[in-house]
Simulated assay, not measured.
Amino acid sequence: MNLSDETHNAAQPDVVNTTSQTQETLQCNREHPHGHVYAIGYVKPYFATIDLEKQYEAAAEFTKQSTTSFDQIFNYVTSPNEQPNLRIRPFLYLAQQATWVFTINNVDTYTLYPRTLTQLNALIQASTKNEVILVGLVERISVAGSHGSEALPSVLVEHLIDTVDGTKSPPKKTREGALAQLKPNIGRSNLERASNYLVTHFDQINTSQTQNEIIDNVNAVHFQHVSLHDDRSIIEVILSNPNDTRFACNIDVTNAYPFVSSKLAPFAKSS
């Protein structure tokens, strides 16, 4: 499910007003090159100055919302008396000036940069404490006023997917073994992205054409690179059950969105 709020503020442009951030973003440190990110975690905003914090607290008091209700405050809508048909979000500017941080396993991991109002709306919606999948591009960027003593690796947001609605389902028997040990990671290397994709899409991967589970219990997971095509990055995932019966599938992690390039099927090791 795409976390995109299409209710636009009539008084706001379609591109996020982060001019100063954009200028500084271009002054990037090439210590780490561009790379795809496919990570699982939580989104939360921080305010880099006391002045912004006080403005946000005043907005919370005005809207009669808790200071943790970021979406309710940023999305608060009002209409000017002289223009009753015009709907504006007076506190949206606070979301634009906030430092958006992506947290993995309770550790602040990335600073997020939306490039459009739709992406900013997605960040606002994601701040409701739901776990999400982050799809984006990462590079090391030094940004003045960023959260923390050092700038976190910065991700240009492409897409946020709500795992509650779109992918992850309640734990099944298969999640009690080896799959439960696959914790969310930073999602930068091919193996990391394949692992995150397996965790979030396992129920779809493990469903046959007759809608039955292919493997009913997983006690071991193994990842390995596959050299099939020079221009593709393929990770083979091998799943074993307690009887040592193995199944495998290929996950293509070449581009921003991983996908299963060969379906889960009985695994026969080549001689």
Rank of each mutant, 00 (worst) to 15 (best):
N217I: 07
S270K: 14
F102H: 04
L134H: 02
S127K: 07
Q119V: 05
Q65N: 09
I73W: 04
S262R: 14
G148P: 06
T25S: 09
T25L: 08
N105H: 03
S146L: 00
A144R: 00
R115W: 08
I186V: 13
A144G: 07
P170N: 12
Q21R: 11
N75C: 07
I186M: 07
E61M: 05
L228H: 09
L120M: 15
P184W: 00
A144Q: 01
T245N: 14
S69L: 05
N9T: 07
I234H: 10
D51S: 10
H229V: 11
F267Y: 15
D108G: 03
N185F: 01
E61C: 03
A10S: 15
V237K: 05
N130L: 01
L134V: 01
P171A: 11
I141C: 04
H201Y: 09
D71N: 14
F47G: 00
S271A: 12
Q96A: 14
G187E: 04
F202G: 05
Y38D: 02
Y56K: 01
S66K: 12
S227I: 09
S271L: 10
E158W: 07
K168E: 09
A268F: 13
D230R: 14
W100E: 08
P242V: 04
Y257E: 13
G145M: 00
A268N: 13
R30K: 10
Q65A: 10
I124T: 13
N2F: 11
K129N: 15
D244N: 14
A39I: 06
F267L: 02
A59Q: 06
G148R: 06
N206M: 06
L112S: 04
A10G: 14
N212K: 14
I40Q: 08
V77K: 15
A144L: 01
H147D: 04
N212T: 12
G148H: 05
N217M: 13
R87L: 13
V107A: 07
R30T: 00
V132W: 02
S169Y: 05
D165I: 09
H159S: 06
F267H: 15
Y56D: 07
I161R: 00
T7V: 15
S69W: 02
P80K: 12
F91N: 07
Q119M: 07
Q224Y: 02
V77L: 04
E31D: 08
L134P: 04
E236S: 07
R87I: 09
P171C: 10
S142F: 03
N185R: 06
T103S: 15
T111N: 07
Y76C: 08
F91D: 03
I234Q: 13
T103F: 02
H229S: 15
S69R: 10
Q125F: 06
I251D: 02
R188W: 02
L182Y: 12
A126T: 08
I235W: 11
Y110C: 01
Q204N: 12
E131R: 08
Y257V: 12
K183E: 14
N130Y: 01
S146A: 05
E158T: 06
A265F: 04
A39S: 15
A10K: 15
P266N: 03
S149Q: 02
R140H: 11
G136T: 03
S149D: 02
N9I: 03
S142L: 05
T200F: 00
S261C: 15
D71I: 01
C249A: 05
R246N: 11
A194H: 05
D216P: 00
T200L: 06
V15M: 06
A248N: 11
D162Y: 05
Q204I: 06
P171Q: 12
Y93F: 15
V260T: 10
K129Q: 14
S20M: 08
